[in-house]
């Protein structure tokens, strides 16, 4: 199957794995803190007897999904993300269990922007947002230079206008 879409060869930077791990860790830390504080408050005020059972089961679910998201998901995410940009189309492919292919004509693109959060900045990475007439696509985990280069390129290509029939 891979060779049918072989032109999507550009991959995203491996550093995105670390970035995703950090941001997922922070996210799950917050979830655990919230759950823990609810547990403490419940214990302190003696609200409900059944609440701890719910919270412990939520703990279990969060733990399993946390291990998956922090250890494995970023690796798969990076491994299966592909993009390709040429004069006519933007092509994206991501996901392995749930595969998604996206193709957008260059002429339908309205803007490109570069976004960079604090963690991304530390690792000198950026995300490109491509706004079409309808939705917005984003390519994550590009190095800063790649990102700037790519957004310039897209802007250049998108300047070519199609004749509205």
């Amino acid at each position: 199957m891979e060779d049918e879409f072989h032109y999507q060869q550009n991959r995203i930077s491996k550093k995105i794995i670390t970035v995703l791990r950090i941001s997922y860790s922070i996210g799950y830390l917050i979830i655990f803190l919230v759950l823990f504080s609810v547990l403490l408050i419940n214990y302190y005020f003696g609200w409900y007897v059944w609440l701890p059972i719910v919270i412990y089961s939520l703990f279990c679910i969060a733990l399993i999904s946390g291990i998956w998201s922090i250890l494995f998901k970023p690796v798969f995410f990076q491994k299966h993300w592909r993009y390709h940009i040429d004069e006519q189309y933007v092509r994206l492919k991501y996901g392995h269990i749930n595969e998604t292919f996206i193709i957008v004509p260059m002429t339908k693109i309205q803007f490109v922007s570069i976004a960079q959060g604090p963690i991304l900045r530390k690792y000198k990475l950026c995300t490109i947002n491509i706004g079409t007439m309808g939705s917005s696509l984003s390519i994550p985990g590009l190095t800063k230079e790649e990102g700037v280069e790519l957004s310039k390129q897209i802007a250049q290509f998108a300047k070519i206008k199609e004749v509205e029939q």
Partner: peptide, 24 residues
Amino acid sequence: IEVRLKRSWLQKQFKIATLKTVNR
């Protein structure tokens, strides 16, 4: 103006996919 082709793991086993198109 946009095409999305998706398939889940199960769809992949059945050799089928979901197609989405976007119009202005």
